[in-house]
Amino acid sequence: MAHTFTYPRDVKTVYYFGTCLVDMSFPQAGMAGIHLLRRAGVEVVFPQEQSCCGQPAYNSGFLEEARAVARAQIKAFSKADWPIVVPSGSCAGMMRHHYPEMFANDPEYFDVRKFSERVFELGDFLHNALHVRYEDKGKPVKVTWHSSCHAMREMGATAAAKALIGQLSNVELVEIEREYECCGFGGTFSIKQPEISAAMVADKVEDIRATGASAILSGDCGCLMNIGGAMERTGVPVAPRHLAEFIWERING
């Protein structure tokens, strides 16, 4: 899968696709992303008709439902050809790589491809398209990082996220053992195969705990909900934080 994207230059306006999970459960993380974009001098447009990228149905075998919902998103972001920034590597990967697959045999294939090429993951976009610079105003803290599988393998967004964290002078980033390994979320996988998913997240929590970090950062709320829920359940005192929310707090002191 392509990891090197062509980033737009002189960006004035972007669309923001908040994702269904952020909308329901992590709206503060979503707002932080909007704030970071605006701080970089970019106008943010949030179409109210947006909802979900369609990945839950797509990954569960319900292609027709996924396509219907995908079409609704494509329509919601069709008034201008601004880049579409997404505070989730997984949803961004869905829209970037899987929308064209889903419509491969349809007349709208090329339109869908054009849409897909406008989709970027938030951290990647901040770093590689907007070249943001941050000044850390927070107290010294040790954190660790978890990439969602799709942020890493579909969107190639890991390096950008780490570069952003690296700009925060009082933040020490410790890498976890087997950083490349899935946390066991996988959307409906965690419901269809709860025991395997539980074994995966338990190992991930153990590796996070071993770092001694006080927070686990990620660009994906799905992983954070999974890891955070498991840590809360087992009393592991590490805070799950979305990267955008974390950065926003650090630069505002």
Binding site: Y16, M24, S25, F26, P27, G30, M31, A198, V201, R233
Partner: peptide, 16 residues
């Protein structure tokens, strides 16, 4: 093995 997901009182749509 996890605590239940939480739902925010106001959605991102609303906050935006």
């Amino acid at each position: 093995v996890r605590t239940a997901p939480r739902f925010a009182p106001k959605s991102l749509h609303q906050l935006a």
